[in-house]
Structures are given as C-alpha cells and as structure tokens.
Amino acid sequence: MEDKAEKGNKVLVLPCSGIGKAYGEMARQAAYTLIEDFYPDQVITTCLAKLMIGDPDAVNLVKNNTVFTIDGCASDCARKNVESTGKKVDHSVRVINIFKHHKDLRPTGVLDLGEPGFKLVQFLAEDLAKEIDCLGKKED
C-alpha cells in the first residue's frame, strides 16, 4: 500500500487526535470512518507524531499524496505539523465547526463519544467524503 501511496494516488487523512477534549477523538474517528468504511482502497493515514520526528516514510507520504487534515480545535495542530514539512494541505477542517450545525448533539466523554458523538463523526466523515469525491471528478 505504501508503495502506491508514495507514487501519489492516495488521500492521506491526518487527524489531530487531541487528548484533552472530545474534538480530537471525533477527528480520529472520522479519519477511521473514511479509511475503513468509505474508501478502504483510496484513503490512508499515518501517525501525525511521526512527522514531528521527521520520519522519512511519513514525510514521503505527506509530500507525495493529497493531504486532508482534521483538527479538533483552532490550534490546528494537524495542519501546522503537515506544513512544518513544507507541504501545503489540500483540505483542512475543524471539528468544532460541525457543532455549529448540530447544536443538539454532544459527545458523552473525551474518548467515549456515545451515540451523539458518533452521529457527529458520521456527519463530519460525510462532509469530507464529498471533498474526496470532488477530487475524483477533477481528475476525470
């Protein structure tokens, strides 16, 4: 998989995986939804922290593929860590924005998102899927 990814035909999704609030877990779960449920052959991830140590495989994945970042909050850790490699992200979102459209839904815990949290994750993943579909249409 990584050989193909290094040639640049994948979408690399990097969530921030923040640990302080539920936003980071929602970002992480949205990434897994895209990878495992929606686009198992097209979307991949790597550990964001590998970019912090300049891991060559992770840096190559970032440089050679379309990169989406999902950040929990306005600190934009995922986006800024990608940009620290010299790569501009192709699409970035903040989890906090999804709350604005679904004010009735609140995750039940930081890691245990509960049903409302997973509904938000699904909405977030669907929004990102639309962007991925747009990429496909542009390539056609």
Binding site: A49, M52, S75, K80
Partner: peptide, 11 residues
C-alpha cells in the same frame, strides 16, 4: 496533566 503532543510544533 497532559498536553497534545503536536502542540509542541503548532503552539
């Protein structure tokens, strides 16, 4: 206490 690791670059 904790901190999000990538904040060392983003923060």
């Amino acid at each position: 206490v904790t901190i999000c690791l990538p904040l060392f670059i983003a923060g």
